[in-house]
Design a protein around this nucleic acid. Sequence first.
DNA 1: GATTGTCAAGAGCACTGCTCACAAATAGGT
DNA 2: ACCTATTTGTGAGCAGTGCTCTTGACAATC
Lengths: 244, 244
Amino acid sequence: MWKYAVMAMTKAVSIRAMNRERINEAVLAAARDQIAASGANSLSMRAIARELGMASSAIYRYFESRDALLTKLIIDSYDSLGRAAESAEARISRDDPGGRFRAICHAVRRWALANRHEYFLIYGTPVPGYQAPQDTVGPATRVADLMIALLVESDMARPRLSQSVAATPATAALHRALAPIRAGVSNEISDAELASGLSVFSALFGAVSFELSGQLHNVIKDGEASRRAYFDSQIDGWLAVLSW
Amino acid sequence: MWKYAVMAMTKAVSIRAMNRERINEAVLAAARDQIAASGANSLSMRAIARELGMASSAIYRYFESRDALLTKLIIDSYDSLGRAAESAEARISRDDPGGRFRAICHAVRRWALANRHEYFLIYGTPVPGYQAPQDTVGPATRVADLMIALLVESDMARPRLSQSVAATPATAALHRALAPIRAGVSNEISDAELASGLSVFSALFGAVSFELSGQLHNVIKDGEASRRAYFDSQIDGWLAVLSW
DNA sequence: GATTGTCAAGAGCACTGCTCACAAATAGGT
DNA sequence: ACCTATTTGTGAGCAGTGCTCTTGACAATC
């Protein structure tokens, strides 16, 4: 069926496919605008349709449901954040792990500040009843992958302390707890280091979430200068935890 | 007007006032049930009215609007969490700051696990358009107050290192950033310590949020034993940051 | 016993996600 | 060029939402 269409060069992609693609993008753009303006909560299918000048029911030709639209937006947001972190990290000299770590942290915060509602779309309250489909896990781990790579790499370069920790019940339990992530991480890196890395990772998002959700109000002075100074002091703390 | 009512002893509180109080509590209870079942997002005034067997419009005699109800629920949640943390901390010997810190962390996590939706009500995505009224700030800081007290107290007991940090531009900026919280905190405690304390505080909520929103899926083994082992390892890290 | 303030109910407005039957546009094969 | 099958758009409609306003009933006060 497609064989002939492809052969017919000029209409390799049909007008329909092109239109479909165009409208699909327009729907997503309108949705992103709406989310940026007032959050995912108030994302309205009808409002998108109005914006695009089409019947409210027509939207459902492009996205099966509101949830499906949301899923697509979530994946895109993860990708956008991942791209931002990756490109910021890539700009730093390879032999400066501390600098690369700093770059990732600042990239995450910058992206979050510039896209608050998209940030909360992925790191905010989980939507009740909404089960994250499998497609979201890949993009979701881009930032984490970056940090794990950094952790492993800098661990290889570090002189082995060969400090075999005493096998207490606690360390054994931690070892079992880390089993799932172990599947994808070098065995060179110790349980303690891996756990520290994860902890710093969640601390990063805790810090960003606190700033974005206004929990720092009346605690840290408003304004980018102060907020950034405090964030920098936090990064120093995390670097110390990772002994960098 | 009330003068006579009060004088009439037996009916100091009228039947009306009592009924009103009873229904008010019933509305709140139904609302909490609904939130526990499916989150704040899907809290419905009509559903509450149905539950209580009254007309949908009658609810508005008790709460001016959905937002007003939400505000009351938020305050109650902050109080509930604060109470949980306080009573857990109070059970630990006064001369064991590390133990008291651990108790607070575990209390926060336990409360969050037992009241996930209420947790996200206060530490999740801020509701767009919803401005937290002034009444919420008091209860909101109960856990933080507890930790700051601990920080100050244990700092007094610690031998002064009198390490006057070099006054770099960064330390000066951090000092300015911390101005708001300084208003309510002893000057004995240094900027660096205060910032570390805050950072650990947000890390705690970052860790709890990560666990509750499923970000640890495929990372840390499911089940309370593993989750708790990982959480304990995080507490150890935070204790180290605070040099306890 | 009359008055006054309070409360519940019902109807209604404007909105939401979503479905369905139908009409228009476009595709492919003859 | 024609015919048929698929795809896209439409409008009506269902069931739900928060919220308002009027109306009638009742309890508390005088």
